[in-house]
Simulated scan of single mutants.
Amino acid sequence: MKQEIEMTVYGAEQLCPSCVNLPSSKETYEWLKAAIARKYPNQPFKVTYVDILNPPEDEEKKNFAQRVIEEDMFYPVVLIEDQVVGEGNPRLKTIYAEMERRGYTAV
Rank of each mutant, 00 (worst) to 15 (best):
K2P: 15
E4P: 12
I5L: 07
E6F: 11
E6D: 11
M7W: 10
M7N: 07
V9Q: 07
V9Y: 07
V9E: 09
Y10Q: 14
G11N: 05
A12M: 02
A12I: 01
E13G: 12
Q14Y: 09
C16R: 09
C16N: 11
P17W: 01
C19M: 14
V20P: 12
L22G: 14
P23S: 09
P23E: 03
S24E: 01
S24V: 02
E27Y: 05
T28P: 11
L32A: 06
L32R: 10
A34T: 08
A34S: 13
I36Y: 03
I36L: 07
K39P: 13
P41S: 00
P41A: 00
P41H: 00
N42T: 05
N42E: 12
F45Y: 06
F45R: 03
K46G: 04
V47T: 08
Y49L: 02
Y49Q: 01
Y49F: 12
Y49S: 00
V50I: 10
D51L: 01
L53W: 07
L53R: 06
N54P: 00
N54R: 06
N54A: 06
P56G: 06
P56R: 05
P56M: 05
D58S: 05
D58T: 01
E60N: 04
E60M: 08
E60C: 06
K61Y: 00
K61C: 04
K62S: 09
F64T: 08
F64I: 02
R67Y: 12
V68Q: 10
V68L: 10
E71Y: 13
D72T: 15
D72S: 15
M73Q: 06
F74H: 14
Y75V: 01
P76F: 00
V77E: 03
V78R: 00
L79K: 14
I80L: 12
E81Y: 08
D82P: 15
G86N: 03
G86P: 11
E87L: 07
G88K: 11
R91Q: 15
L92C: 06
L92Y: 08
L92M: 12
I95Q: 04
A97E: 11
R102P: 00
Y104S: 09
A106R: 12
